[in-house]
Amino acid sequence: MGGIVVIGAGQAGAALAARLRALKYAGPVTLIGAEPAAPYQRPPLSKAYLLGETDLDRLLLRNADFWDAQNIDLRPNAEVTGIDRAAKCVVLGGERIPYDQLALTTGAVVRRLPPAIGGDLAGIHYMRTLADADRLAPELVAGRRVLIVGGGYIGLEAAAVAAKRGLQVTLVEAAPRILQRVAAPETSDWFRALHLAHGVRIVEGVGLDRLVGTGHVSGAVLANGEEIAVDFVIAGVGILPDTGLAEAAGLALDNGIRVDGQGRTSDPAIWAAGDCASFPYAGGRIRLESVQNAIDQAECVAANMLGAGKDYLPYPWFWSDQYDVKLQIAGLNTGYDRVVVRDEGAARAHWYYRAGRLIAVDAMNDPRAFMVAKRLLAAGRSADPAKVADPAVELKTLLA
């Protein structure tokens, strides 16, 4: 028997393998990861880990002895070079590992700046892996000048870390405002003000024309002609689903590895979960980039690999830490037509509505709003906008 092989040892892969054992699957389980480290958490890399507030041991998803204790064959620092669907095996160096069922939890890779605009210069950093964080950490020296390209959450988190370390921070965003793809103007305005108060310079509506330098980046030229001297660059311009193995194996793709409601790919013996998987949702298809989705979808797929026959229904939530602010997001704001602001001073939340129904919430230092909204959304319920906007109304009464 080949058992179950899982390619990708990130959050989804680790959750899937562990869930198989929790569900009493007794066959062989092989978990293959490209990185040298055992499965670890990624979100703290751009926050606490870069600030030196946590170490690798605290990032690990499981204790070192968990994998052996669960009889899971963990293969770190291993690159799968192909999938032989006809023979039902994966190619790992000179080894061929057979499988009865295969799970792809390959995650995502960062978008890189193109060489045509200087993207091949030294001194350009990305934030996705432990190795990325380890390369970036020595650059964060007070007084140095950093250019951050991209005003999404990764870029803003990097800006917050650099500003806290005393660097001179300039952030450029080609779109008219930061967070434009993921948040309402009200949230963009709130976070812009937060970063400006910490000395970050934010340039919006202006793209990066090119990076300059001899071997190592030393400056940037913006689309408006402005020239900026820099010591290094952090690019946070999004991620792409890692579909290389799936594509080479001839699996169907659709903004990721296309799966059905249960997580099965176009090959009935192969499944996918996490950042790399595109699944049916609300009459269309969606790919969610979040820890919560990686875990929940992977655990659902594990059950379905054992015959549960259950469709995956996500309850999306996300978070971001910047300075002393914890942003918690419940739901998906796609297609919102109204934003209701609840301002309680230290706590603030932006409630998104579509056609009169609550669909999402951005909660800044407001865990009560996040939890109430999360429960409402999970129950398929809405909330009266007038009550939401009134700080005198207790949030918990919205659950009554």
Rank of each mutant, 00 (worst) to 15 (best):
I4H: 04
V6T: 04
G13K: 01
A17F: 13
L20K: 00
K24Y: 09
Y25P: 02
G27N: 05
G33N: 03
E35M: 03
P36T: 07
A37I: 01
Y40K: 02
S46Q: 02
K47M: 15
Y49V: 08
T54W: 14
F66H: 08
F66G: 02
W67C: 03
D68T: 10
D68M: 00
D68V: 02
A69C: 08
D73F: 05
R75K: 11
T81F: 08
G82P: 00
R85P: 10
A86K: 08
A87K: 02
L92G: 01
L92H: 00
G93I: 09
E95A: 14
R96K: 03
Q101A: 10
L102A: 07
V110R: 01
L113P: 04
P115D: 05
I117N: 06
G118C: 04
G119D: 05
D120Q: 08
G123F: 11
H125M: 05
Y126M: 04
R128T: 02
T129Y: 09
A133C: 07
A133S: 13
G143C: 11
L147H: 01
G151R: 00
G152M: 01
Y153H: 05
Y153D: 10
G155F: 03
A163L: 14
K164M: 15
E173W: 05
A174S: 10
R177F: 13
L179R: 00
V182S: 09
S188R: 00
F191A: 03
F191T: 02
L194W: 12
L194N: 12
H195I: 01
L196Q: 12
H198M: 14
H198Q: 13
G199A: 11
R201Q: 11
E204K: 00
G205Y: 07
L208N: 02
L208W: 01
H216N: 06
L222F: 10
A223S: 13
A223F: 03
E227A: 10
V230P: 10
I234E: 07
G236T: 00
L240I: 12
P241F: 04
D242S: 14
L245T: 07
A246T: 03
A252C: 13
R258C: 15
V259M: 07
G261K: 02
T265G: 12
D267P: 11
I270V: 15
C276W: 03
A277Q: 07
I286L: 15
R287L: 14
L288H: 06
D296A: 15
A302G: 06
M305Y: 06
A308L: 11
K310L: 14
L313H: 09
Y315A: 15
P316E: 09
Q328E: 15
Q328H: 12
Q328V: 15
G331M: 10
R338T: 14
V339C: 10
V340G: 12
V341F: 12
V341E: 15
G345N: 09
A346S: 13
R354Q: 14
G356Q: 12
N365S: 14
R368F: 14
F370C: 05
M371S: 09
V372H: 13
A373Y: 11
R375K: 10
L377M: 11
A383D: 13
P385C: 05
P391Y: 09
V393F: 11
E394L: 07
L395R: 01
L395I: 04
